[in-house]
Each structure stands twice: as structure tokens, then as C-alpha cells.
Computed example of a mutant assay.
Amino acid sequence: MNAFVNLDSEGDGRTRVRLDELVALRSRVAKAALPRLESRALHAGQQGSRLYGRGMDYAESRIYQPGDDVRRLDWRLTARSGRLHTKLFEEEREGRLLILLDTHESMRFGTRVRFKAVQAARVVALAAWYVVRAGERVGLMEFGDGHRLLRPQGGPKGALAVCGALVDWDARRQSSRGESLSNALQRAGRLMHGTNRVLVVSDGLSCDEAAKGRLLDLTGKADVRVLVVADALELGLPPPGHYPLEHKGERREVTLFGERQRREFQQRLGAGQQRLNAIAQSLGVPHRTIDTAADPLDALLALLALLAPGARR
């Protein structure tokens, strides 16, 4: 279902994703007073280990032992001490965030400011800039419109790749029957490859009965966050009036005046976000909900930041 907006141009930032807007969000993140991140942190319960090898950060030097790589000899310490010493290196544990982006047709709906799909793209772009600023890698996986995947990359190049993919995927919409959230979560579990954090961005309408079990499974592999994007009509009782809507090119007008009629309409529209939030709540997965008119930065920072002791999830 698409809310009718009388706009002719593509990439308007309301019905279609704009690349310049996504790139400009970098300055928002750069100016924000960011809380401490879970950067380069292992999943809860795991202990860091010192691993040594080529191409890693220098840790210390020790007496040479048979089998040590002679190319790693510490010649200065060897000269001072008169005994062979080998340089040891500590692995830099680089955090990786995989973002699961809902691209179902239901995301192309909006009655305030922009479509849910455009708001979701803004969330993803902000997350990408946030993560690479912390020295982490960011990857992107879509579910719904297709199975496209962007492998995790670091630095500004990684965030720009995410922004480019968002615009490209939005413009090159594929014919698809959709994908359940449970299947997407299962697929993500097979694509982890060192990922230690996952952010799910969805309106929840693809949330099925099996999603709770799949989400629980994923929390055993990574630190999971959920951000629900919803329209104002999905979050509260719509005011009385006439609502022009569009679905697959067909325009219709819905008339809502009676309180019961308006409540039933809101409950049908908001069923997805209610299910997804309820599942996240039951599993203790940190989650936030934003509407299409909101500035998503604060909600996103609250999800991705390391929660302070005693903070409520």
C-alpha cells in the first residue's frame, strides 16, 4: 500500500532515496557527541585473547624461540641486549555490524513527510557513518524485495558503499514474493563471518511465528538490535477524515469517521510493528520505534551505543 504523494521526480527524499541526503548525514554523525561504542568488543561472555602474527598491532618483544619468524626479529633490542628478540603482535579485534534492511512493498508507504523505505534508508546510512567512525566495518543485507548483500567494509569507503547500495536497491526494485523475517534472520546467521553486531530495520509486517526462535538463535551469535520504522497511522488512532491511498498503481480513498472504524484500521496497519516490538521485548533485545517524520539519530545512538549501567532497554 502506497500513500499517494503528488511528486514527479525520483530521488526526492520522500518517496525515493536520495544519495546526496544519505552522504550528507555523515556530518550529523561527525558533530554528534557520541556515547562509547561497543567497538572491537567480543560478544558478551567471551574473553579477549592475545594473538600474534604478521600485519597486526605491535604488543611486545621476547627472547627468540626456535620456529619464530626471523623477519620479525627486534633488531634494536637484540643489539642492546646482545640476545635475539622477536617482536610479538596483538590482533586488532575489529567490530563488524551487519544491517538487515526490510525492502518489502509495505515499506513503500507513508502519510507523514516520507515513505517508511526512505526513513529506513536514512537510518541505515546514519548507522553506517556511525560505525565506520568508530573504526568498525559495516555490511548490508536486504530481505523482501530480493536477497542482495553488501559485504562488510570499513572506513568512509564502506559507508559510501552502503549509501550507494541503498540508492541502487531502491531504484532497481525486483519482482519478489517477499521473505519472512524468520527466513531472513536464518539467512543472516549463515552470513556472520566475524560479525559481532546485527541491526534489524523493518516495519515488522514480515514478522511470522518462527521469527521469535530465529531471533533468539541470532542473539547467541551476535549482539542484536531492532529498529522499527512505522507510519503515524500505524502508531496511533487516525483523526477522522478522507485518506487517499495508492496500491500497485490503483488509487483509492478510504473514509474514516467512526471511532471503531478508525481503531480497526489502525490495528490492521500497526499489527506488524506491534508483533516485532513484542518479540524483541520478550527476548530482551534492545529495540526502538520511530515514525517517518522523526529524526532517527537519537534512537539509533541509543541502540548502537554501549548502555550505561542501570540503563533501561
Rank of each mutant, 00 (worst) to 15 (best):
W129P: 07
V228Q: 04
V138S: 13
D223W: 00
E91H: 10
L304G: 03
E91C: 10
L166C: 06
L98R: 08
R16N: 14
D208P: 08
I290F: 00
R108Q: 10
L307G: 02
Q47N: 09
N6Q: 05
H147Q: 11
S182K: 01
A134K: 10
L166H: 04
D217F: 03
F115P: 01
E105H: 11
V123L: 10
G310F: 01
L300H: 06
S9Y: 06
P244A: 05
T15A: 13
Q186S: 12
R263T: 14
L88P: 04
L7K: 03
F265P: 05
R26Y: 07
V226S: 04
L306I: 07
V131P: 02
R312A: 13
D291Y: 00
L199G: 01
Q174L: 15
A211S: 11
S182H: 01
H242A: 14
Q261T: 12
G11F: 01
D69G: 08
L88C: 12
E21S: 11
R214V: 07
S206L: 01
G249M: 07
S39I: 05
G241W: 11
R108C: 12
P240L: 12
L7P: 03
T219M: 09
A294E: 02
A188W: 00
L7H: 07
V138E: 15
E209M: 07
S81L: 08
A278T: 04
R190Y: 08
L237R: 08
A24R: 01
R26F: 09
G139Q: 14
Q281W: 03
Q65K: 11
D12E: 09
A161C: 09
Q174F: 15
G164W: 00
A59W: 00
G135I: 11
G272S: 04
P35R: 12
T78N: 14
L42Q: 03
Y52H: 15
M56D: 12
S206C: 05
G236E: 10
A159Y: 02
R197Q: 14
S49L: 15
L84M: 07
D295K: 03
R172L: 01
P296S: 06
R225V: 01
D145L: 01
Q119K: 13
A44V: 02
Q281A: 13
L235W: 02
G220Q: 08
R71Y: 04
L25H: 03
T289G: 02
L245H: 08
Y64T: 06
R187A: 09
V198M: 12
L304A: 10
G53M: 12
L150Q: 00
Q174V: 15
M141V: 10
S39N: 05
D12L: 07
D74Q: 08
G194K: 15
F257R: 12
V23G: 08
A117I: 02
R133V: 10
